[in-house]
């Protein structure tokens, strides 16, 4: 008879085996690069946005439409999109404001300086003045997605960065990480919130609420993977710029008429 295992040895060894079996097989799948590679598709939609700051008149209908369409509390001090006014005077002065995120438009020629009050500027002193609509840039290398500790925010296959409200823990890292200030805490859901390009509309063939609301065509959305798309054609062929290019976030919102003073 060969050396039989003692009972003690058998128990010790079987514990080790059982402990090993408890490790889920899925733990190894997550780390498999081959599976990730197989899921990449090249023919998907890739959303891009075009803003023409020459056409924007600061009416604020886009902000109002966004708040109502996406159920962001109307009177809350937060909006998924907003319009900034820049007034540059002939003596080199620089003033910018965004009263209530331009929800009610710009009806006062005085620049709103929050606690500092309101600043009157004579029309003859103005060198350049213009409006810059802003929204989430749906970056190709989004810093907000990188810092999420739980995987609540992500870049969807068609390019839109979304937040999973059921998974977000409300830590606020993404709000801090965004260099454009596009994210905020939703006052009701207490999770991170931001512009989604009206994902529920673009996936049905409609345009985002802000694009539809703009009477002057300052906002347009298009598909970069569609060669016939006029927006894609404008982005590739015309002179366009992006915000904060130096951060390397690769934003997908392109601007016509961006001044170097724009923050």
């Amino acid at each position: 008879m060969t050396d039989a295992m003692s009972r003690r040895d058998f128990l010790k060894k079987s514990t080790v085996v059982v402990a090993g079996v408890l490790v889920p097989v899925a733990a190894f799948e997550i780390l498999s690069p081959a599976r990730v590679q197989a899921l990449k598709t090249d023919d998907a939609v890739r959303w891009a946005f075009l803003v023409d700051t020459y056409k924007c008149v600061g009416c604020g209908f886009c902000v109002k439409a966004c708040k109502l369409e996406n159920e962001v509390p109307y009177d809350a001090n937060a909006s998924r999109t907003w319009v900034e006014r820049y007034v540059l005077t002939k003596d080199g002065g620089f003033h910018a404001d965004s009263p209530k995120a331009a929800r009610d438009g710009f009806t006062d020629s005085r620049v709103d300086l929050n606690e500092s009050g309101q600043l009157s500027i004579k029309p003859e002193e103005i060198d350049k003045a213009f409006f810059v609509p802003k929204l989430c840039n749906q970056c190709d290398k989004p810093p907000c997605v990188q810092v999420c500790p739980v995987g609540a925010t992500f870049k969807a296959p068609d390019g839109v960065v979304l937040v999973d409200r059921t998974w977000c823990i409300g830590c606020g890292y993404c709000i801090m990480a965004c260099p454009y200030g596009a994210r905020f805490f939703h006052p009701v859901y207490h999770t991170a919130e931001k512009c989604t390009f009206c994902y529920h509309r673009i996936t049905k063939g409609l345009s985002p609420a802000c694009v539809q609301a703009c009477p002057f065509g300052a906002r347009q959305i298009g598909n970069l993977n569609d060669p016939n798309d006029p927006v894609a054609e404008a982005i590739t062929n015309e002179r366009v710029g992006v915000l904060r290019k130096e951060y390397g976030t690769r934003p997908q919102v392109f601007y016509i008429g961006l001044d170097r003073e724009v923050r």
Binding site: G105, A129, F130, F131
Partner: peptide
Amino acid sequence: CLRCHAKLQYPTSGR
């Protein structure tokens, strides 16, 4: 109405 029709004499802007 004032959203668009409050006169703002801004050169370089559609306004």
